[in-house]
Design a protein around this nucleic acid. Sequence first.
DNA 1: ACTCCAATCTGGTATATACCAGATTATCGA
DNA 2: TCGATAATCTGGTATATACCAGATTGGAGT
Lengths: 240, 240
Amino acid sequence: MSRTDYPVYLQLRDRLWEWIEAEQLSSQQRLPSERELSERFGTTRVTVRQALSQLEAEGLIFRSNRRGWYITPERLRYDPSRDLGFNRYVTEQGFCPRTETLFKQLTEVPQWLSEISGLEAGTPVYHVFRRRYVNERGLLVEHNYINPAHCPGLLSESTNLSIWQLLRDKYDLRPEHRDIEIYPLALKGLEAESLHVNQGTAGLYIQRLSFDQHGDFLELDREYWLHDALKISVRIGDRH
Amino acid sequence: MSRTDYPVYLQLRDRLWEWIEAEQLSSQQRLPSERELSERFGTTRVTVRQALSQLEAEGLIFRSNRRGWYITPERLRYDPSRDLGFNRYVTEQGFCPRTETLFKQLTEVPQWLSEISGLEAGTPVYHVFRRRYVNERGLLVEHNYINPAHCPGLLSESTNLSIWQLLRDKYDLRPEHRDIEIYPLALKGLEAESLHVNQGTAGLYIQRLSFDQHGDFLELDREYWLHDALKISVRIGDRH
DNA sequence: ACTCCAATCTGGTATATACCAGATTATCGA
DNA sequence: TCGATAATCTGGTATATACCAGATTGGAGT
């Protein structure tokens, strides 16, 4: 194995990670600055950044805009097929959840939503935009589009907890069936800004389109996660 | 909106994409070389590469090692909860599938597999490593670990088609329940090499652990996908 | 103690330049 | 016509350097 011709930045990646493990840096702790690392490991800042980006791609470290590099916490397990509610399953895993409502408004159904929901374009729809934290790290932002037909006055409720729970307990609405879509993408524009990450940061998109027991469109949920923040875990066909 | 202070490489990203759309470049077509683009758009190759990487992160273009940049084809829709078989659902979407078996062997259950499968470490297990193409672009590699208990002689069958189909039709084995895990990661080592992509390329990991109708470990499937290759699409709770 | 502001620290962006290594293409010779 | 090989084209790696912009820190003045 002639691994001697391994590129410098990959060797550096390995040395960096060894160093991190030796130093026992743990979740959310800050790494030394790029300039310091480049001195310590005898190379340029550019190369250090390549190595750091590699570790970032692997989900081992993450960056906080112009503040530094940090050790990535363990991934959150998440089952999008169940309607447990964010706070609930975060707590169950021993972490501390937090939700901020960035805005909520009554708006009109745009064309694209009309096509997948069956609602008439231009009719009213609730739109909620929220940011979710685990242990004070913002992991995702999500857009909720909710059919106001069966839940008038929803927006005057607090939206910092589970919307599903609200819909179920107060309006007796429950998702009867759901279409889920998941794919990797780059975080851009509003989503990147709201999560304080750079344009183009790797993310995971999760969309849930749900219909209620009447067969009517209930809610569309579009979640933008940091790529290193979660591990989707689903169990199928288990009767217990 | 003072978007004038937008970084050059993001402006370039936009101009590049506009240019691509104007030129009507389509799926799998090659872009001009980086040097040519840097001249044409009046900037350095480094900045061009930043812009290209941005488009790559968004899944709009992809690179083929030292050959150039290409337009990314449409994502493949994929439902990991169903056992349709790769060739089947690729064909259904009007694409052309191909599977290569890179190796297959009878080996011993490693520790980590023992822990999740319930098999004794050191007992025999089939291991198949395959690469899958759609329209001659390699989209994923996958490791299959199969319990030989109920399907002796499996390896002498062709593994270029659906293993599930083989298990079902020839050995009467069907997955009774399944644990699925999905998360973004960086493609490294063997997986990156086999897909001819650079170390650290963004990918999506899908793991399926399935148990047969006897409750025995049937198969473990570990798939490494290119990040821009698929869109997971699942329908839940629909009785039709 | 507190507030405000300047200095400083951080990563982010940008240019210029060089050489390397794999992939492709052109060319020459049999 | 074919095959080996050399030239060339591609992206990949690496160094050096500069300045920008947001975040943090520290100190002066109240």
